[in-house]
């Protein structure tokens, strides 16, 4: 079964539009949603969760149509962390726990309290006095405390210091050890996605440029570093994007299959692939 299936979704929002978005996240996997600011990542998440109604196309989450009345039940199985923790500012972590206990049928108060301890979150401090990192940690604690099968994380690791971020990524990894648990995570921190994800989906100006297995992406692309003349000698189709690297040199993202076998290429990171693709798309 697929955890998420978006099929030919269109949505116009003033001057911006999600166009023909089709995306599949198989159950048991982690998919990283990448894109520039305003590429449509948060809109995609809202469409997926039926917080926005698409102009056309369908969204299915955990096998259920997001537009159907049954989808409310599915939300019990989805833990969501948005780019900001949108709890009312006057609430404390203890009060948030009580509200969530009345919200989710499978709320696990012990697990929530364990997360509060683990993240060193004060129970009685008002939410407005939390730092951004603390707010995100509280959101993560809530999302993980109602026994979800799918986590939807929109910039969930931003604002966290590197140590906590690493710990949170490990928690997400632990979460997917259950074979029917899946994650969709959007992030600007591409190194996090490279560490965590099985799939990478790249949104650019409301269009999905690709969604592929991370390992296959890393095998498909390499980084060429050399002179402009050397680069010109390669097939035009081999070069995805290029940039000047100083001293007359040039760096380029190339398709390994389309360059001569002996050509030495550096390993491309997910960040290289995305950055070169954005630059390529702008040209």
């Amino acid at each position: 079964m697929n955890a998420i299936e978006l099929s030919h979704i269109h949505k116009s929002l003033g001057g911006f539009a999600i166009q023909d978005l089709s995306l599949t996240v198989p159950s048991g996997t982690i998919c990283g949603l990448v894109g520039e600011n305003g590429a449509g990542k948060s809109t995609t998440i809202r469409l997926m969760m039926n917080a926005l109604t698409p102009d056309s196309g369908t969204a299915r989450v955990l096998g259920v149509d997001a537009a159907s009345p049954e989808f409310r039940e599915v939300k019990e199985d989805v833990g969501v962390v948005l780019d900001e923790a949108y709890y009312p500012e006057t609430l404390t972590a203890v009060q948030v726990g009580r509200v969530m206990a009345e919200t989710y049928r499978r709320w696990d108060q012990k697990r929530y309290e364990d997360f509060l301890d683990r993240f060193q979150l004060p129970g009685k401090k008002r939410f407005k006095d939390f730092s951004r990192g603390m707010k995100m940690k509280l959101s993560i604690a809530v999302a993980l405390s109602h026994q979800p099968r799918l986590l939807v994380l929109d910039e969930a690791t931003s604002g966290l210091d590197p140590i906590v971020r690493d710990e949170v990524l490990e928690i997400f990894n632990e979460f997917t050890r259950e074979e029917d648990h899946s994650i969709l995570i959007s992030s600007h921190i591409l190194s996090d996605l490279e560490k965590l994800c099985d799939y990478i989906a790249f949104l650019h100006q409301g269009r999905l440029l690709f969604c592929d297995e991370k390992d296959r992406l890393l095998e498909t692309y390499g980084v060429f570093a050399g002179t402009a003349e050397q680069l010109e000698s390669l097939q035009r189709e081999a070069v995805v994007g290029r940039e000047a690297s100083g001293f007359g040199g040039v760096r380029a993202l190339v398709r390994r299959e389309e360059v001569p076998a002996g050509l030495e290429l550096e390993r491309a990171s997910v960040e290289d692939i995305i950055l070169f693709m954005v630059k390529g798309a702008r040209k």
Partner: peptide, 10 residues
């Protein structure tokens, strides 16, 4: 912006 979060909840 609680309503945005509430829209994601059951």
């Amino acid at each position: 912006h609680w309503d945005q979060l509430a829209a994601m909840m059951p």
